[in-house]
């Protein structure tokens, strides 16, 4: 019966208990079922082996080739030429700087806004569900829609063409907030693209922090209050230290989203090179410029950046699972 009463979706804490290998499995003679079980997952394993690992390998090969123009592949080996060229490529330099600024600000803003919203919502309010839904709904929308909408909201036009948020600020008498937004001269234009990204992803961060806050027992809070801690001290010394694991998970998810950011930039920048990022450069140079080997090299550099973040995380979580067995 426990399985039936436990039908809510898995969370990190409850998922581990039943993961042990069933007793009837170990040393049993159900060899046919065992072989069958492997055959069932084999197509998926093969699909990932080819479409993820095989294709990554093939991309590496393309990045080391001389296929720099035209649709006809040219696999002449040319070593690390493309990578070396990229590091003195002005556009790629802009891309790296933009990614660094975007990722840093996006992480800081998402984590602080998400944590703030979660703490505000954790005060046993009426209407908590409504607020939560409002902060989370942008997550259901595509980055393209967000980009198209925010491009108009962040219109830098002035005078009689003034529109979007600038117009709103003007009409509300908040003129000091009027900004050139994403058309601010480099390097800070990209910083404004963080605003729609945070609008879209902060609700998700909030949901993660809220789940973390809800898993801290009331006894602990009570004990701290009995010891004379005020609300501020309670959060500073008791609650925030317990949210470190949530912060790590959030950094992983937000960080890899941000390093790969693509659709949002495409929709907002509409080809403005000042807002360029590696993902967009890869797409343009490959499919518009037919420079396949440069495109592949950018893709592989992106992969390495993301892998630095993800691989340690995956290895740790695999180890911790094995330890539970």
């Amino acid at each position: 019966m426990s399985a039936i009463s436990n039908r809510s979706a898995p969370t990190a804490s409850t998922a581990s208990s039943a993961r042990q290998t069933p007793r009837w499995w170990r040393g049993s003679t159900f060899t046919t079922d065992r072989i069958l079980s492997f055959l069932i997952v084999l197509p998926s394993i093969l699909a990932i082996a080819i479409f993820v690992y095989g294709f990554i390998g093939w991309s590496v090969r393309v990045s080391l080739s001389a296929w720099t123009k035209g649709l006809i592949p040219n696999y002449t080996y040319s070593g690390l030429d493309r990578y070396i060229a990229l590091f003195s490529d002005r556009r790629f330099g802009i891309d790296m700087r933009n990614t660094a600024i975007f990722t840093l600000l996006f992480l800081i803003a998402c984590l602080s806004v998400g944590l703030l919203l979660a703490i505000l919502l954790d005060q046993h309010l009426k209407g908590e569900g409504i607020f939560r839904s409002i902060f989370l709904f942008p997550m259901a929308i595509s980055f393209i829609v967000t980009g198209v909408a925010w491009r108009w909201l962040m219109s830098p036009a002035t005078g009689s063409r003034i529109s979007g948020l600038n117009l709103l600020f003007d009409q509300l008498g908040l003129d000091f907030l009027i900004s050139r937004w994403h058309t601010t001269p480099p390097p800070w234009g990209i910083a404004f693209v963080v605003i729609p990204a945070v609008w879209q992803m902060s609700g998700f961060t909030m949901a993660m922090y809220l789940a973390g806050l809800r898993s801290i027992s009331d006894d602990l809070r009570e004990a701290a209050r009995v010891d004379g801690a005020n609300e501020l001290q309670l959060y500073r010394f008791i609650i925030l230290p317990q949210l470190q694991a949530v912060t790590l998970s959030a950094v992983i998810v937000l960080g890899h989203t941000s390093l790969k950011i693509f659709d949002l930039i495409v929709a907002i920048s509409q080809n403005d090179i000042k807002l360029d990022v590696p993902a967009v450069y890869m797409w343009r140079t490959t499919f518009d410029g037919s420079n396949y080997s440069r495109g592949a090299a950018i893709g592989i550099i992106m992969l390495i950046t993301v892998a630095v973040l993800i691989v340690p995380y995956l290895i740790t979580s695999m180890r911790s699972q094995e330890a539970k067995l």
């Binding site: 991309s59 693509f262 396949y292 993301v306």
Partner: peptide
């Protein structure tokens, strides 16, 4: 190894 596939930037497999 399968899970890694959900984090990769798809630009790294796009050409193949």
């Amino acid at each position: 190894l399968i899970l890694f596939g959900m984090f990769i930037p798809y630009q790294s497999i796009l050409i193949p």
